[in-house]
Structures are given as structure tokens and as C-alpha cells.
Amino acid sequence: MVFEFEATLGTDGFMGAILIPEDIADQLAVDKIKRVVATITSNNKELKLHAGVSKKHGTVYLMFSKANRKLLDVDQGDTVKVKMQEDTSKYQAPMTEELEAVLLSDFEAYEIFETLTPGKQRNIIFMVYNAKGEQKRVDIALNAMENLKIGNRDPYKFEKLI
């Protein structure tokens, strides 16, 4: 199911968030949808966002970082158009070619990666995804797999091994 709505940024104390309308939030809860792929549009610019559906004090929202606001050139009080649907991908995150290639070439690392919690898998995927440049993504993917193989299962505590 595809959900479409407009949201004003920075209302109700949620500056770094896109508030989801109550009727859509209710449907997400009924369908037990916790992760979405959203296309955010403003100022003739478009951004694809893989995000978790969060809830705080009864308000349901998507995190919307300062970096993403800068990419779309929007600020508090601006309105954005949102089109979102459930993220049905295997890891519920944007798998890069570089990380996929490393996982395919290193079976031991792949087996360890598959035993991680979905959140830790996504942390590693986003760590690679957010790197600038193909070689940097390869280096980070290789480093992450080496950390897994030496027993470090916490992406926030990965050491630079390469």
C-alpha cells in the first residue's frame, strides 16, 4: 500500500522529523509496518529515504536529518510531499553493490553478518551506503567484515583495520 501526504517541518517540537498524519499512522499500526521507503519532494528536488516509523508521546513520525533537509533545501515551517510504502527488502535498507560483493566473496563474514540482529545489519549497510565514492564504500565494507571475523559484533565500535 502506498501512502501519500504533505507535512510541515518543525511543528510540535519535532524539528528533525516528518510527522505522519493520524489516519496513516493508524493504518501503519494495523498493518504492523515498522520500516518504510519514502520519497520526499520539495522545491523540485526529490530524496529517497529508508526509515523506521517512530512513535513518541503518541506522535508517529519519520526521522528527517539536518543533512536531508539541506539536500532538499527545506527548513522549519516548509512543507514537503511524502510518498511512502513498506520496505519489503531483505534487510530493510539500501544494500550497496560494494557490500553485496564483499559478502558474496567472503562466506565466513556473510555467515556472521546473517547472525546479527536486523538493526546491526542495517547499521553496517548504512555505514557503507553513506560513504562517498565507490572505493571508500569497498574499504568500509571490507573493514566491517574483518571486524565481524575478529569477533567485534558492534558496528559502533568497529576498529579501523585496513
Rank of each mutant, 00 (worst) to 15 (best):
Lys83Pro: 03
Met127Ile: 01
Lys149Arg: 15
Lys160Gly: 02
Val53Asn: 06
Ala51Val: 14
Lys55Cys: 14
Ile24Trp: 02
Val138Asp: 04
Asp75Ile: 15
Ile20Val: 13
Asp31Lys: 09
Val82Glu: 05
Tyr129Cys: 08
Ile124Pro: 08
Ala101Leu: 11
Val74His: 01
Gly151Met: 15
Asp73Pro: 05
Asp26Ser: 14
Gln121Ile: 12
Tyr91Met: 06
Asn143Trp: 07
Thr115Ala: 05
Thr39Leu: 14
Asp154Leu: 14
Glu114His: 01
Lys70Arg: 12
Val30Tyr: 03
Thr96Ala: 07
Thr59Ile: 15
Lys149His: 06
Lys45Tyr: 04
Asp154Glu: 09
Lys81Phe: 15
Leu142Met: 08
Asn130Pro: 01
Ile112Tyr: 00
Thr41Ile: 14
Lys81His: 13
Val128Asp: 02
Tyr129Ala: 12
Ala38Thr: 04
Leu72His: 02
Leu19Thr: 07
Phe14Asn: 00
Val82Thr: 08
Lys56Pro: 07
Ala51His: 03
Val80Cys: 05
Met63Cys: 10
Ile40Val: 13
Ala51Pro: 08
Leu62Cys: 09
Met127Pro: 00
Phe64Thr: 07
Asn43Arg: 10
Val30Lys: 12
Asp23Leu: 15
Val102Ser: 05
Ala101Thr: 12
Val80Arg: 05
Asn152His: 08
Glu100Val: 05
Phe158Thr: 06
Thr79Ala: 03
Ile125Thr: 05
Glu98Met: 07
Ala141Ile: 06
Val53Leu: 09
Glu98Asp: 03
Tyr61Asp: 11
Glu159His: 08
Val36Thr: 12
Asp78Arg: 02
Val128Glu: 01
Lys32Cys: 07
Leu47Asn: 06
Gln76Gly: 11
Ser105Asp: 15
Asp31Met: 14
Lys56Asp: 13
Gln85His: 05
Val53Gly: 08
Gln85Phe: 00
Thr79Val: 14
Pro21Ile: 06
Ala144Asn: 04
Val82Gly: 03
Ala67Ser: 04
Lys136Ile: 06
Val138Leu: 08
Gln76Ile: 15
Asp31Gly: 06
Pro21Asn: 03
Pro155Met: 09
Ile40Cys: 04
Val37Arg: 03
Phe107His: 12
